[in-house]
Design a protein around this nucleic acid. Structure first.
Length: 908
DNA sequence: TCTCTGGAAATAGAC
DNA sequence: TCGTCTATTTCCAGA
């Protein structure tokens, strides 16, 4: 495996790396192995390539990465690393200059040379090659892909169907875990843990799937759905399809899924679609970046082609449509450089579907937006490079703060936003409770260079944060939209890129992001998709920013919003708990807890539940609800914390509770931790708003859901370091650091630190922190979960932790965890491993992994109880107890399983 | 004319 | 296997 990833490869081509990964994955079957491999060699591996090379590898990084003379591949994870590398490479493509390694114009340069990993099965390669015209040079040799046309790309993904197996459907891309999406990119990231599924193949899928990705997005074409522009575009083409799709049985009819259709190919191949040309043109002119992107996509496609997996998966997993797509393209191979194709890019690939579309179609908006932006030395374009695979996979858990930087959601989105289907018109941008729009700000960034804020739709269940398979961000444009943005596809996940400008204090008003719902049937058909769409209607807005450091490394920060319920029905009927004033309390109970949210009724019930790892209910009791607190339909509910069944616990016990309005109408599980009687209550900071409540009050913890636990950005005092990211000093407490953000902005949201998440849950209780300690287990993670440094000793572990999301490791290893941050080397040199977050890391094996295992991964929703301990700054924390009561992993699974159940079961 | 919304019918799937 | 209930997806219409 290692070999595969051999450094050399990376440097040269991120794609290659990806591919390799994909191959690896597929080959290895085990993601882990791949990852591991990656790791292993990682360190050593790094290859340095002269930037000068036109190599795609060169990252374009925004900022300077390029400058880095050499690109080293960090050992890390492929994904991660690879990504980086990839990115670079990508970036290279993106380079405005459009320089390609070959020197060919970006657009033109269809050819991609990839260092093949020995690992590749020839077969796979061949397949790919067939499509793309890839020339193999042999193992380890470089593969030159000629991209006939952009088309290839997409197809590739599509192509894959044949491919075998890969598991994951491309489509699933969204979740790297699941799908193999990431594989390429992420694979590492995805690493096993995440996706249990991990099937190796996933990787390919990713690539292949571009379309898959989002269906919406995806489609390469951009899917209409996806991008707005696209939309524009898409709309054109797509619209029709989608509907039709339905008819098609999702399951097997390929036609059906809009997604697929879209995504893949349809347009492309089939339809000459307007897109194609336009895009291209546009691209060239308008966006160099685009071009590059295209290139990338092309590359990706090529890669995909190479990678069997992706293809395969696609084919298999993907609905026929998809295949068609792929097929189509293939035949024609006319590559248009359509963005769409790009999009697909497996991870690394960024699909720029949009771009094309944008360019062509919507340029206006798109371009306009960007263009409009004051020209800084850095134009938007540049930032794009970030997208490149190099960057951490989307399912990596990253910290919200690192060193001086702190990414915060100043204004949280409303808890409900009805997502629109491809068959519908846009339902507008996500709004804030206040009536405005969410606001995100990066603190601590003093440079004059603008950055790119990435936004994608993530899951909101207890599991680690990752791209949501059933939802895609949708770019909104129009008179009412003041924020420029453009879409990019990465690993089947549509990403909205928004400029963060120094002149605006690195603050962005997110009024350009809507949410697109993909048909469950389309997504579930994907081959590696394990998540179930039914009742999996909660999402979070996930924001990321990548900050290049002088040393060539990149600091990646991530913050997730509070959960957003996207279904029409839910918005009307299901109770939603947005905040809880208390997250932990002694077993004696008796304290009043204020819940805030939606759809609370006088007759609403609050049920506390403790589940065994196996999912069995160990304890369930109905809490006393102050009905007076709820008049008619209210947004607040006051309940008395019931005493725990066992008053003599020695360590904190994590349970869950939910609000139920009747049969099948219950909220998701909210976490609550019972503390040993003698444990001092930590938190309690009365905070906010609710303080006033007094006994009840307590500060509200936001995000009851999943979120809470995870994220707390805040670092408890205890560990300032946690925030540190590679070397950075610990982040100041969020609050502190940050300006006061709006309440809404609750810090909590932040990261889903994987750690926290993941395992946090389990651990959470345990977490290290002593019971009374302030620190939340999560916190630690939370803060800086993200990336492990390569270098960090633990590297692996750390990685694991970080990335892994919850890998136990981090849990265990305090130090590492937190601290590893998200920094990863962009490039070069890294000698270190710069870590990619992704790193596969050992953790993989960690229990967690299993926990997450596929099933979990799959389900996005597992709300279940298990959410990780919440992070709520305040409450959550207490957990510290060492022990943990539940082992979440398992629970997670169950929960996950329950997910559906849970809700369903809800009660009654 | 187009976008955004809210509502609800039609359809699919779970129980 | 069938009926009922839910959830999802598609349509429609108004602002």
């Amino acid at each position: 495996m290692q070999d595969t990833f051999s450094p050399s490869v990376r440097p040269e081509f991120s794609f290659g790396a990806r591919i390799a990964r994909g191959l690896l994955t597929s080959l290895s079957a085990d993601m882990k192995s791949a990852e591991e491999d990656a790791y292993n060699y990682t360190p050593n591996v790094s290859l340095s390539l002269p930037l000068g090379m036109g190599n795609p590898c060169l990252p374009t990084q925004y900022h300077t990465l390029q400058s880095s003379p050499v690109i080293s591949v960090s050992s890390c994870h492929q994904t991660g690393y690879g990504l980086q590398n990839d990115n670079h490479s990508v970036s290279g493509y993106y380079l405005p200059q459009g320089l390609r390694p070959n020197g060919a114009p970006a657009l033109e340069s269809p050819r991609i040379e990839i260092t093949a990993y020995s690992q590749y099965p020839e077969n796979e390669v061949e397949e790919g090659s067939g499509e793309d015209h890839i020339i193999k040079r042999g193992v380890n040799s470089i593969v030159t892909l000629t991209l006939p046309n952009a088309d290839g790309y997409r197809d590739p993904s599509c192509l894959s169907p044949a491919s075998s197996v890969s598991s994951r459907s491309c489509n699933s891309d969204a979740s790297s875990y699941e799908s193999g999406f990431y594989n390429y990119d992420n694979s590492p990231q995805n690493s096993p843990w995440q996706s249990p599924c991990v099937s190796p193949r996933g990787t390919s899928s990713l690539l292949s799937c571009p379309h898959a990705v989002g269906p919406a997005t995806g489609s390469p074409h951009h899917s209409p759905s996806t991008s707005p522009q696209i939309g524009a575009v898409a709309e054109e083409g797509w619209p029709a399809q989608p509907r039709g799709s339905r008819p098609n049985s999702p399951k097997y009819s390929f036609n059906g899924s809009s997604y697929h259709q879209t995504s893949c190919s349809p347009n492309q191949s089939l339809t000459p679609s307007p897109h194609g040309s336009p895009r291209v043109s546009v691209t060239d002119e308008n966006w160099l970046a685009n071009t590059n992107q295209y290139t990338n996509s092309a590359i990706v496609a090529a890669i995909n082609a190479l990678t069997t997996d992706g293809v395969v998966d696609m084919g298999e997993g993907i609905p026929i449509k998809t295949r068609k797509t792929m097929l189509d393209p293939t035949p024609s191979m006319s590559l248009k450089v359509e963005p769409g194709g790009d999009e697909l890019g497996p991870d690394g690939e960024l699909c720029h579907e949009d771009y094309p579309s944008r360019l062509g179609l919507k340029k206006e908006n798109y371009g306009g937006g960007f263009l409009d932006v004051p020209q800084h030395p850095y134009s938007w374009h540049k930032p794009k490079p970030y997208l490149s695979p190099s960057l951490p996979a989307l399912d990596w858990q990253l910290p919200s703060c690192s060193g001086p930087y702190n990414l915060q959601i100043e204004v949280q989105p409303k808890s409900h936003h009805r997502a629109h289907y491809e068959t519908e018109g846009s339902r507008g941008a996500v709004k804030a409770l206040s009536g405005g729009h969410p606001v995100v700000q990066l603190y601590g960034y003093m440079e004059s260079e603008p950055l790119t804020l990435q936004l994608f739709i993530g899951t909101a269940d207890d599991r680690l944060l990752r791209p949501h398979a059933f939802y895609q961000v949708h770019r909104i444009t129009g008179k009412t939209v003041s924020t420029a943005s453009h879409e990019v596809m990465q690993s089947n996940t549509k990403i909205l890129e928004i400029p963060l400008l120094p002149e605006n204090n690195m603050r962005a008003i997110i009024d350009c992001a809507g949410i697109l719902k993909l048909r469950n049937s389309d997504i579930e058909l994907r081959k590696g998709e394990t998540d179930i769409g039914r009742k999996n209607t909660r999402v979070r807005l996930v924001f990321r920013v990548h900050i290049n450091q002088p040393n060539g490394r990149t600091v990646s920060l991530q913050v997730a919003s509070n959960p957003i319920e996207c279904s029409q029905r839910s918005a009307q009927e299901l109770p939603l708990v947005e905040k809880q004033s208390v997250t932990s309390y002694p077993t004696t109970g008796g304290k009043m807890m204020l819940l805030t949210g939606l759809n609370f009724l006088p007759e609403s019930k609050v049920v506390f539940v403790e589940k065994a790892q196996d999912g069995h209910h160990l304890w369930e009791t109905e809490a006393k609800v102050d009905k007076d607190s709820v008049k008619s339909v209210s947004g607040t509910l006051v309940v008395e914390i019931p005493p725990y069944r066992n008053q003599r616990i020695s360590s904190s016990v994590q349970v869950n509770f939910y609000v139920c309005n009747g049969k099948r109408k219950r909220s998701q599980y909210q976490r609550f931790t019972y503390l040993p009687p003698n444990v001092p209550i930590i938190k309690t900071e009365p905070n906010d708003e609710y303080d006033s409540l007094g006994p009840v009050g307590l500060s509200m913890h936001s995000k009851p859901f999943y979120g809470q636990p995870r994220l707390t950005p805040i670092m408890p005092v205890t560990e300032p370091d946690s925030c540190l990211v590679g070397g950075y000093p610990p982040c100041p407490p969020l609050h502190a650091a940050m300006p006061p953000s709006s309440p809404s902005s609750s810090p909590t949201l932040h990261d889903l630190s994987p750690v926290a998440y993941s395992k946090c849950l389990p651990n959470s209780p345990t977490h290290t922190a002593p019971p009374g300690t302030v620190v939340h287990p999560i916190q630690e993670t939370a803060c800086c979960p993200s990336l492990a440094h390569p270098s960090s000793p633990d590297h692996s572990s750390s990685l694991g932790m970080l990335h892994s999301q919850g890998s136990p490791n981090h849990l265990n290893s305090p130090g590492s965890q937190g601290y590893h941050h998200s920094i990863y080397a962009n490039s070069s040199s890294s000698s270190s491993p710069v870590s990619h977050p992704s790193t596969p890391v050992g953790p993989v094996e960690s229990p967690f992994v299993q926990a997450y295992s596929p099933s979990q991964a799959a389900g996005s929703s597992a709300p279940a109880g298990g959410s990780p301990p919440t992070l709520l700054p305040e409450d959550v924390s207490p957990p510290s107890m060492a022990i943990t009561v539940k082992q979440e992993p398992q629970e997670l699974d169950q929960m996950y399983l329950d997910d559906g159940e849970l809700r369903c079961s809800c009660t009654y």
